[in-house]
């Protein structure tokens, strides 16, 4: 699932800005961050490291098939 869950979000929006691939968005109603485009997560953990309340959980699996060159 790549970026997996956001729990205990306070809605500061830093993760939204920080994500290089624009995966996270703020819900205008709940004022909380949610995972809008999980397929684009590059599993870099910047959002987690920048989150002031450590609300973000990330797992190493990608949500879409991964293409590698050899292996």
């Amino acid at each position: 699932m790549t970026i997996k869950q956001i729990n205990g979000c306070i809605g500061c929006g830093i993760c939204v800005q920080t994500c290089p691939t624009d995966v996270i968005a703020l819900d205008p109603k709940t004022k909380k961050a949610f995972i809008k485009y999980p397929a684009d997560c590059q599993i870099c953990h910047l959002c987690r490291m920048y989150c002031p309340v450590d609300a973000i959980t990330i797992s190493p699996e990608k949500s879409i098939p991964v293409i590698v060159s050899w292996g």
Binding site: I10, G11, C12, G13, I14, K31, K32, P52, V53
Partner: peptide, 11 residues
């Protein structure tokens, strides 16, 4: 950041 996120009613 935690105590100044006033956009959030929860805070």
């Amino acid at each position: 950041t935690l105590i100044t996120t006033f956009e959030s009613p929860g805070v």
